[in-house]
Write a protein that binds this DNA or RNA. Structure first.
Length: 952
RNA sequence: ACCGAAAUGGCGGAACUGGUAGACGCGCUGGACUCAAAAUCCAGUGACCUUUAAAGUCGUGUGGGUUCGAGUCCCACUUUCGGUACCA
């Protein structure tokens, strides 16, 4: 064998070499051989933020990388792609602040991300990269949008159908033949339809399209003159400047995901996701069965429609409540109540959703002045308005049963309204008033029935009286699909002179985003796109939509595009869709547990309905990686203060919590970052106002003095609030992996991230233990060489001890890989290397098998050793080792011997001993005798191979 | 407020279906090598009691329960993290 003289292992040189060579040799190119078994493993693609990839991203990426290498070494054709979720708000804000166009900054950020991902040694096939802001990609996002616009949901066949079919139905039999899922129940004849004008017909069709327009509410900030994302609001005020935010109704695009509620619910049973995640999705969909009931309004001919899950408690109704946005509210207000209702609405409008949610103890509301009639008892029932009723759920109105609903009860208590018990729960110990247990009382025809029976009977009577019917209600609402932003996919539609919305022809796609010279804060609630006059008014009498699509548009189907990313004729060819089918393993953060995953499932089902794909679910198995957390530092700002006033954190307790908003501060400005002593000093404050010029004139207050940035002295300190939380661009606390890799190498970084703990757990970032992994890799490398630094592998037969050590490790690794328990894999490798060192093992067969075993975890060092030891091709294309059970056997067993469950002795016995022999000889042991002497032995519990317990 | 998850030495964590709690690593302590330091190697390391050892007692967020036996199962609570649209 040729002697190889090695220098010290230099990860910089070795990693650089293999990064290039792998690319040139196409080691990670996905095979087009459709005869091999496929394995599709996907990472949630990142948003290319300006702060670069942070140490949290790679946690999942490394895990999927290990899995895809393992699967490839096990004979699968592996699809493991990467791309960018490249449209988004931060690039637009950056453009507003600096004038750099989002396309430019995004391209730069992506370049940086690619480098960073490359440095980690991830085995992506970059030829399949997908970028959501690339017109060749969003052409197909727009194409799917048009499909959604041109389809409705057919309730007969339970699938999407072309809107053309619905038009046919309307012109032949009017709304009578309509089995379409819609917002409102519309009634018209074929004759009426045929007489309607273009605009009226278009309005009717909007009620059924899967992509449609409706009035929804946005966060409006008057002071900034713009619409804000939830992300931009903190503690009820705008993050920029701390201005008040209110709700404003606007015409917006929405997607009718609610049509798919039942299928999204049912098909959860077919996927291999964690139970907790499926539970979260089920709760989000929130199916409930109940009744719709119409209460006649007094003094007028119409009714108020409510939804209830407890029709059995109808005799317990003591008042009705409508949501503040309810369409009938205005007409329900009597003249004398008008002003108090208006005052109330003003007050409600200022509260953010989260405020309302966290503040349920504090019930608010006012009486409208109107009454309804109880449909069974004919009693007069007062109608109230309160923000604890939501316009978006059910009918936006409820029948309040304070006896059996705790929120209704709180409301009744506060406003001294009657509380009527209608379920006798005296025989139901421990039952809460809301539980569906007990016997009906004070309820006429329901008296004496059990709650479950009463629900059925009540619905029967409601139907018989023609005042309502049984109804299934879903909590999930339609998704708002409009953003008043520039940096997103343009809607491929225009409005004609009648104001009718028309989809563009497929041949005209993509509709490219016009290049704006200057991007400014949106005005009057309109997107900055409205400034592109030539683009908006592109033809006589036609105007384009100026809203753009939200972030989840591009991410709802990208996993399909990876299958055939360069196709210009279709979003992906049917042959590639048929072969790759769906994602076998999807890894990503829990923060997407509902949003992204729900929308993707919806789009996937829609494309299934249209016949383009053959699977009903996109992600077969899904694993949520935990979050690598960071420290969030923020300054306490007094809301609405002019000039803005920041107070040191120790002073916060002196103020009402409601008055304080926390403004995140970049971690680099903070002294004693991440500790209780974290603060800004003079240079820190100067950096802070340079970074946030809107706070240039701000006042900084600590317990001694109050200063502006201009009259600071070097002693001045202002404490920041320190908390553990997301590492995110929002909190400016991102730690990049680059420095870690430069110092320790990618193999070490990869293994250290895995070694931190279980993949699913969240943990704060800390490099404390990294030297342990680094030391392991050094020891590993030394294993292959002698003291003269020559490759020192010996080609003789391995000893049984060596084989036992190796095969113990292989067995553990196989089990860990399948369970994705990579932290214990790293321990197993450490144990194996420690043992082989003790055995002074230089055996060629043993060490080169171990090298293949380690390859998915440490791709560089293993490739280098593989090459040095004379291997052909790449180690990453070798077969993954399989363990041989016969090497693991041992002829003795170690038993813990307990007395009354307390371990008293460790006992090593020959494996051949029978249960009877063990039971008799265990009592003869001196160490046991001393516990059992003069005691009555009740029984001996002996689990063979496990433990012995003597009960006295 | 609701949904979901987590809590084990000084620290990150291990413990398969209830069966030897603390694997592995960091840190710390002592030793070897060195003029010295770094690096490396060897040994020890949950707390308490004890001069030490042996032996023992306590110990997996808190309080109860089931069991021969509970970190693991059940009930109630506390704290932290993620999500959220007060879901009738």
């Amino acid at each position: 064998m040729q002697k190889f003289i090695y220098m010290e292992y230099d990860h910089r040189v070795v990693e650089q070499k293999w990064k290039q060579k792998w690319q040139i040799d196409g080691v990670y190119k996905v095979s087009n051989d459709f005869s091999l078994p496929k394995y599709y493993i996907l990472d949630m693609f990142p948003y290319p933020s300006g702060s670069g990839l942070h140490v949290g991203h790679p946690l999942g990426y490394i895990a999927s990388d290990i899995m895809s290498r393992y699967k490839r070494m096990s004979g699968f054709n592996v699809l493991h792609p990467m791309g960018f979720d490249a449209f988004g708000l931060p690039a637009e804000q950056y453009a507003i602040q600096t004038g750099v166009h989002p396309a430019v900054s995004t391209a730069e950020n992506m370049e940086r991300y690619r480098d960073q991902l490359h440095n980690i040694g991830l085995n992506y096939d970059w030829d399949r990269e997908v970028i959501t802001c690339d017109p060749s990609y969003y052409k197909w996002t727009q194409w799917i949008f048009i499909q959604l616009f041109e389809h409705y949901y057919c309730l007969n066949s339970n699938q999407a159908k072309p809107i053309k079919d619905l038009i046919q139905v309307f012109s032949h039999s009017g709304s009578l033949g309509c089995a379409a899922f819609g917002q409102d129940e519309l009634n018209f004849t074929d004759e009426e339809w045929n007489q309607k004008g273009e605009k009226e017909r278009a309005d009717i069709l909007m009620n059924y399209r899967l992509a449609y327009r409706k009035i929804s509410f946005v966060n409006w900030c008057e002071a900034l003159g713009t619409v804000l994302a939830n992300d931009e609001i903190k503690d009820g005020v705008s993050e920029r400047g701390g201005h008040p935010v209110e709700k404003k109704p606007m015409m917006q695009w929405a997607l009718r995901i609610s049509a798919y509620s039942e299928r999204l619910l049912q098909d959860l049973n077919t996927v291999e996701w964690s139970e907790s995640l499926k539970t979260m999705q089920r709760n989000w969909i929130g199916k409930s069965t109940g009744a719709q009931v119409f209460f006649p309004l007094q003094g007028r001919s119409d009714t108020l429609e409510v939804f209830t899950t407890r029709p059995d408690t109808i005799f317990g109704v003591s008042f009705l409540v409508v949501a503040p946005e309810h369409p009938l509210l205005k007409s329900l207000c009597t003249a004398d109540r008008d002003q108090s209702v208006i005052n109330y609405l003003n007050q409600v409008n200022k509260k953010t959703d989260r405020d309302k949610q966290s503040d349920v103890k504090n019930m608010t509301g006012v009486f409208t002045g109107s009454y309804a009639t109880h449909p069974f008892t004919e009693q007069k029932i007062s109608i109230w308005v309160s923000d604890y009723v939501l316009i978006e759920y059910g009918t936006g109105a409820i029948m309040a049963v304070p006896g059996h609903d705790l929120r209704d009860q709180a409301f009744a208590n506060k406003f001294e309204l009657p509380i009527i018990q209608v379920v006798d729960q005296s025989n139901e110990t421990g039952a809460s008033p809301e539980e569906k247990r007990g016997i009906m009382i004070r309820s006429e025809f329901l008296n004496g029935l059990q709650v479950q029976e009463a629900i059925v009977k009540a619905i029967e009577q409601i139907v018989a009286k023609k005042i309502g019917k049984e109804k299934v209600q879903y909590r999930m609402r339609d998704a708002n699909f409009s953003r008043q932003r520039y940096w997103g996919e343009p809607f491929p539609v225009y409005y004609n002179s009648e104001g009718v919305c028309v989809a563009m022809d497929y041949s005209e796609l993509p509709l490219e985003l016009p290049r704006l010279e200057k991007i400014e804060v949106s005005k009057n609630g309109k997107s900055p796109l409205a400034e592109a006059q030539d683009w908006v008014h592109f033809a006589e009498g036609k105007t384009r939509e100026t809203d753009t699509m939200p972030g989840y548009a591009g991410s709802s189907w990208y996993f399909l595009r990876y299958m055939d990313p360069k196709n210009t004729e279709e979003f992906a060819s049917s042959s590639s869709l048929d072969y790759w089918q769906d994602v076998d393993l999807y890894i990503g953060g829990t923060e997407h547990a509902v949003g992204h995953l729900m929308y993707s499932r919806f789009w996937h089902k829609f494309l299934y309905d249209l016949g383009y794909i053959k699977t009903v679910e996109p992600f077969k198995r899904l694993v949520n990686q935990g979050m690598i957390q960071g420290m969030i530092e923020s300054l306490a700002l007094i809301k609405d203060s002019k000039p803005p006033k920041f107070i040191s954190h120790e002073l916060v307790s002196q103020y009402d919590e409601e008055l304080i908003a926390y403004i995140p501060v970049h971690k680099d400005f903070v002294k004693n970052y991440g500790t209780p002593e974290a603060h800004l000093d003079q240079p820190g404050i100067e950096e802070f106002i340079k970074w946030r010029p809107d706070f240039k004139e701000a006042l900084f207050v600590n317990s001694l003095e109050s200063k502006t940035a201009h009259d600071l002295n070097s002693e001045f300190k202002i404490r920041t609030k320190t908390e553990v939380g997301k590492m995110s661009k929002r909190y400016h606390n991102v730690v990049n992996p680059d420095d870690v890799i430069a110092e320790y190498g990618a193999d070490c970084f990869r293994m250290y991230e895995m070694f931190l703990g279980p993949l699913e757990d969240s943990k704060p970032w800390d490099t404390k233990g990294i030297s342990g992994v680094s030391g392991f890799l050094k020891k590993y490398h030394q294993l292959f060489f002698n003291d003269n630094k020559e490759l020192a592998l010996i080609g003789e037969a391995p000893t049984p001890e060596m084989l036992k050590v190796l095969h113990t490790c292989i067995k553990k690794l196989r089990a860990d890989l399948d369970a994705m328990s990579y932290n214990t894999s790293v321990s197993a490798f450490m144990i194996c290397v420690n043992e082989l060192r003790k055995l002074n093992c230089k055996n060629r067969e043993v060490l080169l098998t171990l090298n293949k075993l380690l390859a998915p975890f440490a791709p560089f060092i293993t490739e280098e050793i593989y090459q040095i030891s004379g291997g052909l091709g790449s180690v990453h294309h070798q077969e993954y080792p399989i363990h041989n059970e016969s090497f693991l056997e041992s002829d003795s067993i170690n038993y813990p011997v307990s007395v009354n469950g307390k371990k008293r002795y460790e006992w090593t016995v020959p494996k051949a001993m029978t249960k009877e022999e063990l039971e008799s000889s265990v009592l003869q042991l001196d160490e046991i005798k001393k516990w059992t002497e003069n005691q009555n032995i009740k029984k001996i519990i002996l689990v063979p191979g496990r433990m012995i317990n003597i009960v006295i």
